[in-house]
Write a protein that binds this DNA or RNA. Structure first.
Lengths: 301, 301
DNA sequence: TATGACCCATAAGGAGGCCTTATGCCGGAC
DNA sequence: GTCCGGCATAAGGCCTCCTTATGGGTCATA
């Protein structure tokens, strides 16, 4: 049983009764107030009676053709009206404001290598929507962080969350053409070992070399991959500092314009992928739907 | 079925949920808010969830040790707080204000001949209570007129009203000593007929003369008595313009100081009385109780 | 004067909002 | 590792609040 300690219990009367009173005071009619409130005249009569009994004084005088406010009612009505105006305004602002700001949290690489180029087209399509982009390497907990949508990688199953697959988190070595030329070209996987390996501890290297049939026990091992922070290694690779193992979908542009080359068709895949996720319960929130639809369409291109 | 026409339906979320939100926003704790609201933590959790679903966005972030407001929550909280402050203030003012003003409606004679002398002692006993005195000859309809208490005459039974008997509405002739002396004194009822009869149409005259065994068919008859407007006739009688038929209890002072004399012990009584009445439902309203107790005590003197 | 329209009050009945109890889950602290 | 503090969730029941139906009272019209 809770105690009644902290703060004086305001002991406000039933709020529903006050809302009804507000409508009646504006209309000076039970019947018309009932119309506005979408309830019956009897219900309005009941609520007013409740309020009057709670206050201990009548709020309206029942005259033949109409009702009029008593002195008590006249004192109460303006304040109630103001309070509900504030409430309604704030509520509308929150709905509007919440609709106008979209918080997307994503891993860095996806933001810089994929989203950044295309976000403009989303904002043109939805000029009323402001997008706040946050990057974080940790998984997003929607209950704990303020985010509407997250881009995360994983197996695609999270309880309570709806997930749309964007693309596979595959991996394959990439390097700058200049670096490849420096050793006369990269012809077969083993050639890579003659070059600096960027982030050799990444488990992806091990998996890829195994798949390629290359013995690579001299590479350090780390429990995870650097997925999500590929942008750093990619920059190093473009600068010619070494070979990086990267996800193709994130470097389409670099591969297309020749800043990076993918020497082998062999692509590793540990079953993980990039996903767009959001709480199931919010699946129909307009701004979330807008972003989801836009992003999936872009991915499909 | 009511229609939803007039005014945009504000479509506010459940008000109870907003009240709970207000408390939670102030405490930044479901548990403590539950304490303030005298409900369980589970109920608070439920209401916040309802509100969040209605708004379409979370209002709090659930962090391990505490909760914090989301951006939406931050926007909503101050307005809600303000609205409830206004509401609470107005409500308190109405209760206080209603408690501070007592509207008494009464027949003129009672006000001028009985209440006026003694009201001072009531106001001294209840300095916080302002009394507004209204006189009206009609019966008071508490649903239609703004009154807390009424003094009315009648048989003492009105549905929905509580009535306390003040004194009988008896009647007996009164006149000024000087007028009586002008005919050598009033020895027996028939002597009165040699003097001007004030308001001879009053049914009381007829009844009294009948009871006195005096034939008085020359008096005009009117359906009712002038009870409630006796003050006018009393003034005329004091001025020596004639004989009035009056209620003893209302002219104790005049009889005591000799401005009026009551020549005969014979007193008419049609069963009516003066009553103090108020709506049953308000029997325990402090100001009503105060006035009732005071008046009954004064009457008992 | 009778009749209909309008408006509020009241009674009876039922649906559902809302609260409670009980329990689970999670993170942090000792 | 275990306990503790705090929120979430499920099940169940009360009681508020709404609806339908009806009555009373006043005003307007015939």
């Amino acid at each position: 049983m809770p105690d009644l300690s902290s703060r004086q219990v305001s002991q406000l009367p039933p709020l529903q009764a006050i809302r009804v009173f507000d409508a009646v005071a504006r209309h000076l009619s039970f019947t018309r107030a009932a119309g506005e409130l979408a309830m019956t005249q009897a219900a309005v009569s009941y609520q007013i009676k409740v309020l009057e009994e709670r206050i201990g004084a009548p709020l309206f005088l029942r005259r033949p053709r109409q009702i009029v406010l008593t002195e008590a009612g006249q004192r109460l009505a303006p304040a109630v009206g103001e309070a509900f105006a504030i409430l309604g305004q704030a509520y509308a602002a929150v709905r509007g404001g919440a609709d106008g700001l979209l918080c997307v949290t994503t891993v860095l690489t996806f933001a810089s290598n994929w989203l950044a180029h295309r976000l403009g087209s989303f904002q043109i399509a939805h000029p009323a929507l402001a997008v706040r982009l946050e990057t974080s390497s940790r998984l997003t907990d929607f209950a704990r962080e303020e985010a509407d949508i997250a881009i995360r990688s994983g197996a695609g199953k999270w309880p309570g969350l709806e997930a749309h697959k964007l693309f596979d988190a595959d991996f394959t070595p990439m390097l700058s053409p200049k670096l490849a030329a420096s050793i006369g070209g990269v012809k077969e996987p083993a050639d890579l070992l003659r070059l600096p390996i960027l982030d050799p501890g990444d488990i992806w290297w091990n998996e890829w070399f195994s798949a390629a049939g290359v013995h690579s026990h001299d590479l350090a091992r780390r429990p995870g991959s650097s997925m999500g922070a590929q942008a750093y290694e990619a920059n190093a690779a473009i600068a010619g500092h070494g070979v990086a193992i990267l996800t193709r979908a994130l470097f389409k542009a670099e591969l297309a314009d020749g800043r990076l080359i993918q020497p082998f068709d062999l692509v590793g895949d540990d079953g993980h992928a990039y996903w767009l996720v959001y709480p199931e319960a919010r699946r129909n929130v307009p701004k979330i739907r807008a972003f989801r639809d836009w992003l999936l369409a872009e991915i499909a291109c």
